[in-house]
Design a protein around this nucleic acid. Structure first.
Lengths: 222, 222, 222, 222
DNA sequence: AATGAATGAGATTTCATTCAT
DNA sequence: TATGAATGAAATCTCATTCAT
C-alpha cells in the first residue's frame, strides 16, 4: 500500500488547522447572519457577533478586516446559493419562460421560506450601508441581473425575438428582480408575513411571466 | 381697549412669525433632502444639515424631535407628492389598466426624472434604517400600496373579476411597486443612469400592465 | 457719551462666549502639556487629558480634531514663545555673535529652566510621532532654523563674510540647533538633570560661539 | 561508547543548529532595521517584521522578549559599530583635536552615508519611545559620550588643561554629539537630503573643533 | 524550536441629543 | 425661539503578547 505524501503528519496537521479555521470563520458568519437579520446590521455590534460566536473581538478581526467585510462575505455566500438554485431550476425547464417561472417559484418557496435570515440580509440589510458593502451589493445584484439577462435572452431567442432591444432587456430584468425583491420582503417581514408562500408564489409567477412575455411580444411585433 | 382684529399689529406679527417658522422648517427639510440624497442618511450628520440650512443644531431640534424625524417628514412629503401625481393621472384614465400605465409613466418621467433627490430618498434612504424610520417607510409604502390596491380592485371589477382573491391583489400591488422601485433606482443612480427615460417607461409599462392583466385574467378564468 | 455698537448686549455676550471658549481650550492645552511632558504623548490617553482639564472627552474633540492636533497646537505655541524670546535677545545685542550667545543663554536659563514641560515637548515628545505631528515639528524647526540662519547671515555680514556659502550656513545652523537640543535635553531629563544651568549655559555658549566663529572665519579666509 | 569529539556528528549538528539560530535572529534584526528606518518603530507591527524575516510571530518572540527588545538590540549593534569606527579613527590621530575631527568625518562620510538605515534608527527611532527603549538609548549615548569624554580629556591634558571642569567636559561632549545628531539627520532625511556629504563634513568638523577648542581654551586661561 | 490563531485591554473617534444662556 | 458648547455612551479597530500544538 503506497503511502501518499499528502498523508504525512505535517500535512494532516495543516489540514486539520485549515478545517478548524474554516469552522471558526463559519461560526462567526453564522452568528453575524443571525444577528444582522434579527436586529439589523447597524444595530449589531462586533462585540455581539463575537459573543454569539463564542470568540473574542480580536478573533473576529483576525478573520475579517472590518465589520463591513463580514456583511460582504455573507452577501457573497448568499448570492452564490441563490444563483445556484435559480440556475438549476432554470436549466431544468430548458431555457423557457416556464423555466424563469420555476426559478422564481424556487426562490420564494425554497430559498426565502427556508432561509429567511439569508433572504433578509440579501434584501434589506445590505442596502444603504457604507460604500464597501454597497459595492458588494451592487456586484451581487449585477450577477443576478446578468444571470437573468442571459435567461431572458435565451427565451427571447427561442420565442423568435433574435435581438432584443437593450433597454427592453434591461427593463425586463430589473422588473423581474423588483417583483421578487418586494414580494419576498413583503411576505417575509412586511405586513403580510405568514401568508402561505405557495399561493403567493403562484400569483407572483403569473405576474412575472405575464410581464416578461408582454415585453417580449411587443418587441417581436415591433 | 382696542381689540385685535385680524389686521392688528399683533396679528400681523403672529402671521409673520408663523411664516418665518414655516420657512425655517422648510430650509431644514430642503437641506436634509439634498444631503440625504447626496451622501446618504447615515453619513449625514445633524450638524451638516444645520449648516446647510444656516441654522444652529439646536434649532433643528426645535423643529424636529430627532434625526429620524427629519427623514420621516421628508418621506411623508414625498409620498404625498407622489400620491397626488399618481392619483391624478389615474383618475384621468378612468380606472382602467391603461390608467395604471399612465400613472406609472408619470411616476418615472414626471417624478423620478424631475426630482431625483426625492426619488432617491424614497427608494433608497428609507430601507434598512432604525425602526422608527422603517416604520414610516412601511406606512408610506402602505399608503401607496393602498392607492394601487384600490386602483387594481376597480380595474378588476371593470374587467369582470368582482372579488379578487386577497393574495393575488397583494401580489399584484407589491409586484407593481417592485417594478417601479427597481427600475427607477436603476435608471436614476444605478449602472444605467442617463438612459432615455421615455423608452424605459414604455417598456416598464408593458411589463407592468402585462403582469397585472395576466394575474387578473388568471383569476377570472379560475 | 457716544454709545459704541460693540457694546451691545449681543456683542458682549459673544465676547464673553469667545473668552470662555479660549479659556476652555487653554485648560485642555495645559492639561495636555503637563501629561505629555510627564508620561509621554503616546502613553497619555485623550481621556486622561479630558479628566485633568475637567471636561468630557467629547469636549476635547470639539476643540481639537484629534489627539495629534493637540500636540501640534502645543508645538505651535511653544515655538512662538521660543522664537519671541530668542529674537528679542538677539536684537538686544545688535546682531552680533554676542547676540547669538545671549539668545542661547536665554533659551537655556529662561526657557528650559522655567518651562521644562514645554521644553520637553519641544525636544522629546514631538519626535517620532504620527506624520501629522512630525509635519508640524518639521515646520517648527524650520522656523527656528530660519531665524538662526538670518541671525548668522547678519553676523557673517558684519564680520566681513558677505556671502556665506550655503552649505556652511546650513551646517552652522544645524550645529547650533543640535548643541542646544542635546544640552537642554541632557540637563533637563538626562543624567545631568539638576546641574546649575547658568554654568552649563556659559560653557554651551563658549562652544556655540567658538564653533560658529570658526566656520565663519574659515569661509572668510577661504 | 564513542565519545563526541568536536567533530562528532552530534557536535556538528549542534554547530549547525547554532548557526541557524544566529541566522534566524539576524534575519529578524535585518527586517526590523529596514522597517523601523522606513516606516518608524511605532508604525511597524511585529507581524510585519515576522513577515519580512519569513518567520512566524511566535518565532520573533522566541528570539526577543518583546518588540522594544528588538529595537534595543539594534541600538546595541549599531552603537557597537559606530564606537568601533570612531575609536579606530580617533586612535589613528593620537588623541588630538584633529583625531576628534577625523572621527567625526568618518561618522558622517563612512557611517551615515553608507548605512542610512542604521543611522536613522540611532538618531530618530530611539527618541520618545517607551521607557524600556529610552533606557537603552540613554545607555548607548552614554557609551558614546563616555568615549568622547575620554577623548576630550586626553586632548585637554595634552593641551595643558590637566583637570577639566566636569560641567565643561559634559557640555563639550553633549555639544559634539548634538552637532552630529542634527547634521546627520538633516542631511540624511531632512530638507537637505542629497547634499554632498564631504562638504558638509568639512564644515561640521570646523564647527565641532572650533567649539571644542574654545571651551578648552577658556578653561585653560580660567 | 517553531507556529500562528487567539486574546482582550485599550485607544481613538463620532455624533445624536441636551440644556444653560 | 435660537444658539452652540458640552456631553458621554457606544462603536470600531489595533496589536503586543501568549500558548496549545
Amino acid at each position: 500500500m503506497p503511502h501518499a505524501s499528502t498523508n504525512s503528519p505535517e500535512s494532516r496537521r495543516a489540514q486539520r488547522r485549515e478545517r478548524e479555521r474554516q469552522h471558526r470563520r463559519g461560526s462567526i458568519l453564522s452568528a453575524a447572519e443571525k444577528l444582522f437579520a434579527e436586529k439589523g446590521y447597524r444595530s449589531t455590534s462586533v462585540e455581539e457577533v463575537a459573543d454569539l460566536a463564542e470568540v473574542s473581538v480580536g478573533t473576529v478581526y483576525f478573520y475579517f478586516k472590518n465589520k463591513g467585510d463580514i456583511l460582504a462575505e455573507l452577501l457573497k455566500q448568499i448570492s452564490w446559493e441563490v444563483r445556484n438554485l435559480l440556475g438549476e431550476e432554470f436549466r431544468k425547464a430548458d431555457a423557457s419562460l416556464d423555466g424563469i417561472g420555476r426559478a422564481g417559484t424556487a426562490f420564494l418557496t425554497q430559498f426565502c421560506s427556508k432561509h429567511p435570515d439569508k433572504a433578509l440580509i440579501l434584501l434589506r440589510e445590505s442596502a444603504g450601508q457604507e460604500s464597501e458593502v454597497e459595492e458588494r451589493r451592487k456586484w451581487v445584484f449585477e450577477k443576478l441581473a446578468g444571470d437573468l439577462m442571459d435567461a431572458i435572452s435565451q427565451v427571447a431567442n427561442n420565442i423568435g425575438v433574435p435581438r432584443l432591444d437593450e433597454t427592453a432587456l434591461g427593463v425586463a430584468v430589473q422588473g423581474a428582480l423588483g417583483v421578487f425583491e418586494r414580494i419576498a420582503y413583503q411576505y417575509l417581514v412586511g405586513a403580510a408575513r405568514g401568508t402561505d408562500m405557495s399561493a403567493v408564489a403562484r400569483d407572483a409567477i403569473s405576474f412575472l411571466v405575464g410581464g416578461l412575455s408582454t415585453v417580449l411580444w411587443e418587441h417581436k411585433t415591433a
